[in-house]
Amino acid sequence: MTASPARPAAARGAEPEAAWATVCFRPPRTGAPPREAGLQGGPARVVWRTRSAHGPALVRFDALPVTERGCAYRHPSPCLHPPGRLPCDTHLWADADGPADLREHADVLVGRVPRAVAEARRRVRFLLAEHPGCLAVVVPGFGAGCVVGVRRAAGDPWCAGLERGGPRAPASPQAVASVVHAWVAAGGSPSALRAVVPAFPG
């Protein structure tokens, strides 16, 4: 499947406007930990936390290839390792302020502009209402928190704040959003999550 119209490729080193995210709850124990957690720093190694449990997750990002006809939505290669505590999850995230055709196909929308908590909550609810195919939305707040919204089968969406690490090197909003999507897709309650933080803070 391809999207139209065509758009120029992102500048070298710039974060893409959309990507496939694969979340593994059994990260492979190979190689040195990444210096940065996020799109340009390689896979994001994070720790999810609830009130009574915690565990590792690895979020891999595969940017959509850009062709003359637009972005190609080819699904990334599957994980070859056994599942962890929860099954691996692959989904499409897009910039909440990016092109409409990317947002239309996205499972997760991620804001990049930090907002005050009340404004972030309004933004999350608006994005979920405007994009019925989207399961989760994350909007970063000022500091190291973010506001997360998850669509529910009935009633208003679930919406709450989530910790994403210390102010020096918090987990990226994309990594937080992807872990939330994987958690909910596996049957977990979004209200159980308290934090998604870097496994190796800088």
Rank of each mutant, 00 (worst) to 15 (best):
R7T: 11
A9Y: 06
A14Q: 13
E15C: 11
A19S: 14
W20L: 01
W20I: 02
V23E: 03
C24G: 10
G31V: 12
G31R: 06
P33V: 09
P34N: 08
R35L: 15
A37V: 01
G38S: 09
G38W: 00
L39A: 06
G41Y: 04
V47G: 04
R49N: 08
S52E: 14
S52L: 13
A53L: 11
A53I: 10
A57W: 03
A57M: 10
L64S: 03
P65Y: 00
R69C: 02
G70P: 02
R85V: 14
R85Y: 11
D89K: 02
A94E: 03
A94K: 00
P99E: 14
A100T: 08
R103Y: 01
E104C: 06
G111F: 03
R112T: 14
P114K: 09
R115T: 00
R115Q: 13
A118W: 05
A118T: 12
A120W: 00
R121V: 14
R122A: 12
C134D: 09
V137S: 03
F142S: 09
G143W: 10
A144R: 09
C146Q: 02
V147Q: 07
V148R: 08
R152L: 14
A154S: 13
A154G: 01
G155M: 07
C159D: 11
C159V: 15
A160C: 08
L162N: 02
G165T: 03
G166M: 04
A171L: 07
P173Y: 06
V176Y: 06
A177R: 02
S178V: 05
S178G: 08
V179Y: 09
A186G: 13
G187D: 05
G188L: 00
P190I: 09
S191E: 15
A192S: 15
L193R: 03
R194D: 05
R194I: 02
A195Q: 06
V196D: 01
A199N: 04
G202V: 10
